[in-house]
Design a protein around this nucleic acid. Sequence first.
DNA 1: CCTTAACTTGCGCAGCGTGCAAAATTGCAC
DNA 2: GTGCAATTTTGCACGCTGCGCAAGTTAAGG
Lengths: 238, 238
Amino acid sequence: MNPLSSPDVLGGSDAASPSRRELNKAATRRAIATAALGLLRDKGVGQFTVEDIAAAAGISRRTFFNYYSSFEAAMASVADGFLDRALEQFRLRPASEPVLESAQAALMALADPATIAPMAEFFSLTQESPSLARSELEAWDHCTSQIIDAARERLGPRANELYLRALAGSVISCGKAAMTVWFEESDSDLSPASLTRLRQYLIDAMGLLGSGFASQTAPTTLPATHPSDSTSSTTERF
Amino acid sequence: MNPLSSPDVLGGSDAASPSRRELNKAATRRAIATAALGLLRDKGVGQFTVEDIAAAAGISRRTFFNYYSSFEAAMASVADGFLDRALEQFRLRPASEPVLESAQAALMALADPATIAPMAEFFSLTQESPSLARSELEAWDHCTSQIIDAARERLGPRANELYLRALAGSVISCGKAAMTVWFEESDSDLSPASLTRLRQYLIDAMGLLGSGFASQTAPTTLPATHPSDSTSSTTERF
DNA sequence: CCTTAACTTGCGCAGCGTGCAAAATTGCAC
DNA sequence: GTGCAATTTTGCACGCTGCGCAAGTTAAGG
């Protein structure tokens, strides 16, 4: 029946085994996520049911729940897919590189039109739906866990747990802060100039983290409340 | 009827107006949260319904939903109450103090037996319930928003938004990391010695943040992360 | 071809979350 | 106190969720 039924050439047990079943399941997962995102776009948040998603994906309602335990879970998988790209980049960095630099480089990979487009859409939807906001939180948290694992792997199993968690959490927080600020000020603007700004935010955020948010400790006497002002941002402004 | 019905002495329009109705609602809120926590303790997670909580709190199922939109929301309010204590402390710190020091002092207030007891219980339940884990995430996120507001208020409205968000997020992440590590290693041990360790973790985490997680870039001597040393891990390990 | 395991589907059911309107409670002025 | 108005509680109904179960359907392998 199927022209591709021959066993995989590699027969690898370690790597992914692209059996027909696995492929189908992966395809179904993607179909569900795509259908859900599409309905979100077309009908708006809360204006459709799981049954609608299932219909759009060409499966039954029951099968939907075989793949995702809830609509939120399906959405979280979208965000996860986005953040996983950063994870992937992080793992590719040389182990000798300082973690913060690796993180910065990894986050930089997100400032790519094709990569960030779905996330930007997700972000905008997040603003108006507590349910999606929670999905986003979960995704960031999931990413944090992954970073912790990756960093532990890099630094060795005897790495200080507090150090690992504090660092990973802070890195993610800063990445999130950069994306939030970027998104709030340039609503889904994916132009090259806008993406350049996002990159700069990511760099700035990592810089702040690396310097211990030091802008305040230096000037022992705080300089009143008058800055040189200006609309721009580069000044740390206390 | 009520011996306390006289109008509040302050007559403040801005402050909370403790009218009888408000007091009753607050009492109901507390009753619900208490009942929910009690059932969680007695029956275990997922072994009871909203109707059970309502019965335990002496109200109807419908009224429960007048106060909380879900069981998770009720649980998040518990965690919020805990973290709000830290917020309160933060706002009490002098505005001239560096933010990181204020944050450290505020977090220190959490390492108090009476304060942390409910949270420790909440934490332990969190481990075995994705639903409660999400409530916890929401609580941390809520706290982050509050910190951002508080810091913005302190630094002036013209503060760099990226700086604010990155700093607040990192502070919370580090506080969370300290509590997580503490909780994982001393399961709900509220002894003075254990709480001292928690305080040290909080101090260490803030120290890491303030020094930009510098242990790898330059061994310039990190600011005394050695308490008197302890069981093992204090070495930064890379 | 036939068997086994994995996956899908329909069905049923307990529980969730909410709109609605009646009933109870509270605050306030007379 | 009595009555009125505003607020809160409650029961009811309804659609949706999430899951167990068992029967169908499809891939994998002898």
